[in-house]
Write a protein that binds this DNA or RNA. Structure first.
Lengths: 174, 174
DNA sequence: TTTCATCCTTACGTTCACGTCAGTTTCGAG
DNA sequence: CTCGAAACTGACGTGAACGTAAGGATGAAA
């Protein structure tokens, strides 16, 4: 993905990255993020507003939002799910709560101080969430594949008709 | 959703079918159709209003709409596409215009008096429409399948962790 | 320090896809 | 013919998912 700005806004010259010598302070502003994921700042703020995206933690209200590449990726995933699953943002939120839980699990599991019982509990919870998503995705995928096959069949029939026509033409020319 | 009438509305006793001896006058009223395809009369009228469904031809405005099984099937297909492709009704309309064209083709092809040139033209048009739909469907299907695989992988990882936990427990109990 | 594109918040506007209400009319059973 | 469930036609209401405009603040570059 090299094409940085497909929607080429010509008014872009100043404002490089706030890369002030600190290499791991890779943070993007909302407009840049919007361009990256093909949306608008408004949408990103809206998603934050309804709780789909976490509020940038401890941002002194009024200051600019800054996003890490990880958060950008997260947003991309959100939009992907939204498009593919065609669910409401509210439903999506519950699905992503699952994601959150899994992230939580990962975080907790990396620490050593989590007692066994709790650990197992978290794992099973995560599994349940995944299974719910998986069921949803599988169902839709199956439906779509079915539709694809049907379309292919129809296509074949049309092509056959076209060939029949050409054959008829050939015979007539003889 | 308090399930108003999933399938069995108890308030149905009168009003059987207008099957007055005429066997091929199999026509349903809007309410029945709505129940059949899991929607509401309002939605069906709306679809007609925006041109998604053809206005019941030559219906003396004010009389009840009557639907043939074919039209019911058509509506079912419309809703299926809407759900699976997740497009706006406007986009769907253009996609269905393609369907219309194909129906037209079928109708014309069944007649003998269509000249060859026109016939071929229609066929190629139909093919184009099908290809457009197919591309759309394939793209989405592929994306969904990809997502499915990813979820499966994640699932495997979680299950492995659970197993690891159980193994550890076993060793500890020894 | 000035500059100015970009960002902030607040708030009202908009489009889509229907829901709902009202008053009227149709039509099949009795 | 009567009766009532269901349909008809406007017309307005609604929730979701943003768009847009206003007025002011931010912050990297010059």
């Amino acid at each position: 993905m090299s094409a940085p700005a497909p929607t080429g806004s010509p008014t872009r010259s100043r404002r490089t990255k706030p890369d002030g010598g600190d290499p791991h302070a890779q943070s993007l502003r909302i407009g840049d993020v919007a361009r990256l994921v093909q949306t608008t700042p408004r949408t990103i703020r809206y998603y934050e507003e309804i709780g789909l995206l976490p509020e940038a933690p401890a941002r002194p209200s009024g200051r600019h939002r800054l996003y890490t590449p990880a958060e950008v990726e997260r947003l991309r995933e959100v939009m992907r799910l939204k498009n593919l699953l065609g669910v409401s943002l509210e439903e999506l939120k519950t699905l992503l709560t699952a994601e959150e839980a899994r992230a939580e699990v990962r975080a907790q599991l990396s620490r050593e101080d989590v007692v066994g019982e709790r650990r197992l509990e978290l794992l099973h919870e995560a599994l349940g969430h995944i299974d719910r998503q998986l069921e949803l995705v599988r169902h839709r995928a199956a439906e779509l594949t079915k539709l694809e096959h049907e379309l292919c069949e129809t296509r074949k029939r049309v092509r056959r008709k076209i060939r029949e026509y050409h054959d008829a033409e050939e015979r007539a020319a003889r």
